[in-house]
Design a protein around this nucleic acid. Sequence first.
DNA 1: CTAATATATGAGCGATTGCTCATATATTCA
DNA 2: TGAATATATGAGCAATCGCTCATATATTAG
Lengths: 132, 132
Amino acid sequence: MSDTLTLKNARPPAPADEHCEATHLDEKGTADRRRRLMGPRAVESLAETFRVLGDPTRVRILDALSGGELCVCDIAALVNLSESAVSHQLRLLRGMRLVRPRRAGRLVFYALDDSHIIELLHQGLTHVEEQS
Amino acid sequence: MSDTLTLKNARPPAPADEHCEATHLDEKGTADRRRRLMGPRAVESLAETFRVLGDPTRVRILDALSGGELCVCDIAALVNLSESAVSHQLRLLRGMRLVRPRRAGRLVFYALDDSHIIELLHQGLTHVEEQS
DNA sequence: CTAATATATGAGCGATTGCTCATATATTCA
DNA sequence: TGAATATATGAGCAATCGCTCATATATTAG
């Protein structure tokens, strides 16, 4: 997970002096901590990934697909939503390469295209279940 | 075709019953698949958990805190955001028991209160890095 | 061809989000 | 006590989200 921070040349605008009187880490401490932060690119794509999983409808769709491919209308029936709403969400998931379509006549079957995502979902689930 | 929904969903129009002419799984298949779906409670809390991680600012804050506790103004300096914005986000994270405050004079130091969340973050990160 | 069916998509709406700004609260120190 | 500092919070605004509705496209049947 060594994510190289690309912030070296483009030093952050450094309004750091306008926060509290001085940071309460010494300057070296702050620099050290800053050096260990994830890079902006990693932060963005990580947040984007989680944002996709952060909606109940998409969780339901992915969960439904985890049992095998389904056509749009069956997904809609399973998650109890309009086919249009499902289609919009599938477009998003398709755009992020999380699901993959397969045409079969008039029907389009969707399947998971990224098993890691389902692992993440399941790990999140065990976390949720472990909560006191 | 009594559609026994475990979902209590109060939506103004109820397009729930008929989608395409018939589902393209047979009725038994649909029922089986439905039976394997996550329950509404799990879906909601799972999505909520991921939603918290689905914002770059919160990812940065949690990442910063993964190196040890920090006071609000140092967090603000590290993530390069106003202290007010940081405080608002900390309130959210505090409400979800993801971070914990410790007062020290005028300063309030925040620390991670849920190591599982950081595990999730790191697992998400390895997923993101594995992407083609 | 036309009609019917399954899916995709654009517009637009109400709700939510993440920020800023102003202000309130808490703590220390003179 | 009163000024100064660190954090918290309420209001409000622009942007985004997830849906519905209308419509477009693709495929099959007659």
